[in-house]
Design a binder for these strands. Structure first.
Lengths: 153, 153
DNA sequence: TTAAATGCAAATTATTTGCAGAAGC
DNA sequence: GCTTCTGCAAATAATTTGCATTTAA
């Protein structure tokens, strides 16, 4: 886990007058031990592997902290649950493309979109704080070869 | 309500071998009687004003039909419920900006984004089927004048 | 010491579903 | 007449919360 990231989180926790607990420690450890997206439920499992006393409630209470601190991003992939993305610290401007064939999520960066976002917001009289771009798309491989990497069945 | 839109929906219903019922009729009527975004719950109320026998279950069962038919769009505004947008037929390429001060949703169109979407998808080996761009932003008016149109309190 | 954090289990909220009766074709 | 639809009420699933207890500072 990135030392700088850890420091930023603890700075945030301290600034807020919050406390350092073994459960939080484990959740933070787990939250940034991967570059994969995960759900709250998955994070519970990951954190419990580090510290079995971590409960569902504490994870659900800690997730908003990590998001507020700016180190973790909550993204919407069109599912009925929230998804968390630990990669925004390293790549703050990336977006997501979701394959409608295999549900795979591909991250991509595009700097024109940043510029556009600024233009649009200014044109409308706003200052952008965050954006989310989600593109759903079909896999060209599937169409050509009848197969898609992750496609089941 | 747009006659063409109505026709397209009924074409879809017929093509699917589905039936025309008073409840569906009322829900369709309600769904396209406004240009405002609405939630499922709000649509229930609107439809019941037209036909009191409309139930929650039927609205929830009809919404996916309207979305599949391509006449209604399900959008995500970062709330814990789905939002429906009846304006995509007229403005298929619009996106949404959400004011973090007053929660107002501003629709905007940008054709560069369309182009970008195509480029990005092709670059990655996909064909886009739908995109959603959501920008969250603070209101410049609020910053300058300490007021934001819809801001409460 | 004292305010904050925890686990548990119950509550909440949006949405879905099973079923028996009603209605379209 | 045979399905499809419907309303109802119960089920589901993700997330939140109240409370008694524990723990960090």
């Amino acid at each position: 886990m990135d030392a700088d990231l850890r420091q930023k989180i603890y700075e945030y926790i301290e600034k807020k007058g919050l406390r350092k607990t073994v459960q939080r420690e484990a959740i933070i450890q787990a939250a940034f031990s991967t570059v994969e997206h995960y759900t709250a439920e998955e994070l519970i499992a990951m954190a419990q592997r580090i510290e079995p006393s971590v409960s569902r409630a504490t994870v659900y209470r800690t997730l908003p902290l990590l998001v507020e601190s700016g180190q973790l991003r909550e993204i919407d992939l069109g599912k009925d649950h929230k998804t968390y993305d630990p990669n925004f610290v390293n790549r703050p401007h990336h977006n997501h493309l979701i394959c409608t064939d295999c549900q795979k999520v591909v991250e991509f960066e595009d700097h024109y979109m940043e510029t556009l976002e600024d233009c649009i917001s200014k044109r409308l009289g706003f200052s952008p704080t965050s954006k989310s771009v989600r593109i759903e798309a079909t896999c060209d491989k599937l169409k050509k070869f009848g197969a898609c990497e992750n496609k089941h069945g």
